[in-house]
Write a protein that binds this DNA or RNA. Structure first.
Length: 343
DNA sequence: ATACACGCCTGCTGGC
DNA sequence: TGCCAGCAGGCGTGTA
């Protein structure tokens, strides 16, 4: 399931191929993938056909391509979405292909972008661009000089900046947690507070700093919140670095699903298997209609230390983000695009 | 305003 | 073997 690193891999793979390309034809194979397209703004195919793509930009898990006409093509991969860059003659028998874009690029010639999405939690839409509320660059892209750089699609405007964004406000994040009367994991998953984090990387970051997901956010000291934020960044960057290796730049096989499942993980999906740190079996617990995974020994609920004396016994040891995520993960890492064929 | 349950979707898996 | 519940879960919406 694509979270920030996976979406960034897709964006980075897409960008060189689509930037400057013209949309010559659009095929909507399943209109359900347009559920976030506002019909009142016009027909999706009509609005998109003939447009020139200016860039590929990402904030959190949202991806968009500013168009020369001033609007943007917005994509969200949802649970199972992929944006696959293909040659025009690629077989069209993909069972879950929902939308197809036929592009003409001045340097690369004819290209096809297939939006493939099994569960249809993802979507594409044409949306208008609004100025960013803080006047800064809207998201991540290679080019920040275009007229669209400080503009964000209306349906992405409520999404917070992600932790890898240079404009992310650490102090505001600390303050936001102090205000929240809920568990820290819920806040990590709230895209209005910090974007890009899904269930997998939330569990991994919490494991890295030995924190219980139900720990009340407001009970955390500023220091602990900053440790958590650092762990989030480390986990995302580590995954991103791995994803970079799985991208086959030669023949643009842009693929959001290859990579991260089943490897590099210390807690997520490891129910019953030993915690890489202490050996205690990882437990799985119901959480918001899904699951949380944690080490019952390393990650316990603790008395809050915020605003009071630090309780020595409750002070966690320093996080071991790097060592655990690097060394433990490598042997099980999947290969690259080639391994994807197994499905 | 904030917190949380729910619906949207398909395909796979395990229990009976 | 077939059937069905459960699970995967991001995000918008509705409710309290």
């Amino acid at each position: 399931m694509p979270e920030l690193p996976e979406v960034e891999v897709v964006r980075a793979g897409l960008a060189p191929a689509v930037t400057g390309a013209r949309v010559v034809a659009v095929e909507v194979l399943d209109a359900r993938s347009l559920k976030r397209h506002e019909a009142a703004s016009g027909d999706f195919e009509t609005l998109l056909t003939g447009e020139r793509i200016e860039a590929a930009v990402r904030r959190g898990k949202f991806l968009w391509m500013p168009l020369a006409g001033g609007a943007a093509l917005v994509g969200h991969l949802g649970m199972s979405g992929q944006l696959l860059l293909r040659t025009p003659d690629h077989p069209g028998d993909d069972r879950h292909a929902r939308i197809r874009l036929h592009l003409e690029h001045p340097d690369h010639g004819e290209l096809r972008v297939d939006f493939v999405d099994q569960r249809i939690f993802g979507s594409m839409a044409i949306d208008r661009l609004l100025p960013t509320s803080d006047g800064r660059t809207a998201g991540f892209s290679a080019d920040v000089t275009g007229p669209w750089a400080r503009s964000i699609p209306s349906q992405v405007a409520h999404i917070a900046r992600d932790p890898l964004d240079p404009a992310f406000d650490d102090a505001a994040f600390v303050a936001a947690l102090a205000r929240r009367a809920t568990g820290v994991k819920r806040v990590l998953l709230d895209q209005g507070v910090v974007s890009g984090i899904g269930n997998i990387y939330a569990d991994e970051a919490l494991w890295a700093v030995r924190m219980h997901g139900e720990q009340p956010a407001a009970s955390l000291s500023r220091r602990r919140v900053r440790e958590l934020l650092a762990a989030v960044r480390a986990v995302l960057q580590k995954a991103l670095a791995e994803g970079g290796t799985s991208f086959d730049a030669q023949y643009v096989n842009v693929n959001g699903a290859s990579g991260y499942f089943a490897h590099s993980l210390n807690a997520y999906g490891r129910t019953g298997r030993p915690c890489p740190r202490c050996g205690t079996p990882i437990v799985r617990e119901a959480f918001m209609n899904r699951s949380s995974h944690r080490c019952p020994r390393c990650q316990r609920l603790r008395a809050g230390s915020r605003g009071g004396a630090v309780v020595t016994a409750a002070t966690p040891p320093p996080p071991e983000v790097d060592r655990s995520l690097t060394a433990a993960a490598r042997p099980t890492r999947a290969r690259t695009a080639g391994s994807r064929a197994r499905g």
